[in-house]
Write a protein that binds this DNA or RNA. Sequence first.
DNA 1: TTGACAGGCAACCATTTGGTTGCATATTGA
DNA 2: TCAATATGCAACCAAATGGTTGCCTGTCAA
Lengths: 102, 102
Amino acid sequence: MDLVFRALADESRRALLDSLSAKSAQTLGELCSGLSMTRQAVSKHLAILEEANLVATVKRGREKLHYLNPVPIAQIANRWIRKFERARVDALVDLKKKLESE
Amino acid sequence: MDLVFRALADESRRALLDSLSAKSAQTLGELCSGLSMTRQAVSKHLAILEEANLVATVKRGREKLHYLNPVPIAQIANRWIRKFERARVDALVDLKKKLESE
DNA sequence: TTGACAGGCAACCATTTGGTTGCATATTGA
DNA sequence: TCAATATGCAACCAAATGGTTGCCTGTCAA
């Protein structure tokens, strides 16, 4: 869970997820094009996304195909964000009241 | 948006949000108790959460009350996570097919 | 008024992070 | 076979991060 949050904290990595969401089964080289980063930097980012289970890969010959795995993101939505949705109205009303009373 | 993701990347900060979600209007001292961190460390984390607009504060005398603001989290849920929900089934079917064909 | 309490500020430190360069390995296709 | 291609690995570097300690400021209450 922590790995997922940390993986999502970087804009480059979120961009990679975007890219994989738009086009599946991309190779490392493909994912590099357009980004102003060396291949190795992208490779490291992908390793972090893999570690967090946000990206799955399949080797095909000398290429490595990358796939988005949206499950961890869905889990965060379901298990973590919902906690705060419940608190949402209460918290805001609470704060507003406080601000107005001062 | 990036500030929110980065703020959420740290377990201590998520714990602080949890704490504020459970009990609103806590002071810095209150938020510190239970955590094995100096007051200054907690203060820095709270500053990052404030920067990301996840926590709002009101000064009352020599105390500073902290409030959870769940709106940015809700925005991420709505504007960002939904993108990947759309891709979810497609992506998994896609990957499964690939894995089986190799 | 004055000591105790809540918090802010700044300097400092170790570790992690995001990136680079250089070289090695493995697959492909002419 | 062999050059080109796709990726992996390791060392290195600067900057950001998470934490500390020490001291200062402002407020409360006896």
